[in-house]
Amino acid sequence: MSTNIHSAQPSLLGYRFQPFYALIVLWNESEDDLDEVLIEDDDDVTLKGNDFTKLYQLKHSLGSSSSLTVKNDEFWKTIRIWSQFANSPTHQFYFVTNDTVQPSSPLIKLVKADMDRESIVNLMTVEAERVIGEREKAVAAETEPLPYSKRVAGCESFLNLSMEERLKLIEKITIRPNNFNILQIHNEVIKNLKRIVVGKLRYLIANRLLEWWDIRTIDPKIRIRKVDMLFQLQSLIGQFQDNNLPDDYSKQNPISIDAELGGFMEKQIDLVNGRFHRKKRAAIARWRARNQREKWIREDILNAIELEEYDEVLVETWSDKHGPMKDDLIDQPELLCQQKGLELLEWVHSDAHLYINPIRSEWKQHFLMHGSYQQMAEELKVGWHPKYREMLSDD
């Protein structure tokens, strides 16, 4: 997740919770691969299918829970939103909360399916009339501030419906109490992965799926189909096969290019007159490769020995080209040395992958090779100019 949720304000936590809950909804409650989820559309989360629309109002909290009653302000604020859809034959409504509903509470009928709800309509009608009545008394008495400011709009919307429409609305509502919070999202994803992924891979794949989802939902108006989520999930699972590796950095960039420049890597490119854009390309590749290698080792996906063996192949292949080039350019003009060195640098970026096997047979990303070469250029294990060692020996 891109935001430090442990230090975020409660209002921000609720906002950040919406897209992650949308992921769980899309995963568990869609009925077709083409169903799609939206955030902050008709409600906090909306799930749309061919013949249904499900609205989810989320009441998120990290604090201790309380008992939900018919007097709850947030519940009535939600009734105001949903009342406009009372006559819709395709809408369903879900009030998702960390609070509890006591078994003795009348609202338990909105938690359990297939229970008569006429008594709930009557109870809510009485409560709405009480709120409106007390507001009117306060207005007549010129009392300030007026009571029930958070609840009154929902009460008015409910009373504006006929008794038949009120029942239609209430029959579409489900309360989901004791809901998980944003700190438990990772566990919810792991629960779903238990059906299809084994062992420690659940934790690693859950991390990457949430990172992907977080990026996809930066735009709150985006619509994501279940098939899109499933495709990404299958891709992630495939990356953890024995002949492949997860790709975490091919689409990432360093915050600052300048911070990645300098040192022997840049000087080596200067020796062959490679100029700024080749330096930038090298810096990005090295940053990606360095971070990817560190993450593989940190997560025990790949061991250091395998990476060392891969680097040995890179050095040997480079030496097969650099050695003969160096021999051919003895006593040749500096301009020609620069030209041939630049060609070798370009070969690393454009053609080396045609001659060197990837670190795993199904690994398709070239940045690991490009960036590893640039890191070795920083360490003077490889170079582009035929006399790079002599020319940089005094630095």
Rank of each mutant, 00 (worst) to 15 (best):
T53M: 12
F93M: 09
L62Y: 02
I79Y: 01
S64T: 12
E74W: 01
K59G: 04
I79M: 11
F93Q: 04
N50P: 00
I79G: 02
T78N: 03
P89W: 09
T53E: 14
T53K: 15
S64R: 11
K59M: 05
S65T: 14
G63I: 02
L58N: 09
D73S: 15
S67Y: 13
T53P: 00
R80F: 11
P89T: 10
I79S: 01
F95P: 02
T78E: 03
T78K: 04
W82H: 06
H60I: 00
G49T: 12
Q57D: 04
K54G: 05
L55N: 11
N72D: 15
Q84M: 08
A86W: 07
L68A: 00
T53A: 07
Q57R: 01
V96C: 14
L58T: 01
V96E: 05
S88E: 06
P89Q: 12
D73M: 00
K71A: 12
S64F: 09
Q84T: 12
I81M: 04
F75V: 10
Q84W: 01
Y94F: 15
F52C: 02
Y94W: 04
K77F: 01
D73A: 15
Q84Y: 05
K48S: 10
G63K: 13
N50I: 11
F52V: 00
Y56P: 05
L68W: 07
G49H: 05
G63C: 03
P89F: 08
K71V: 03
T90P: 01
S83F: 02
K48V: 07
Q84R: 15
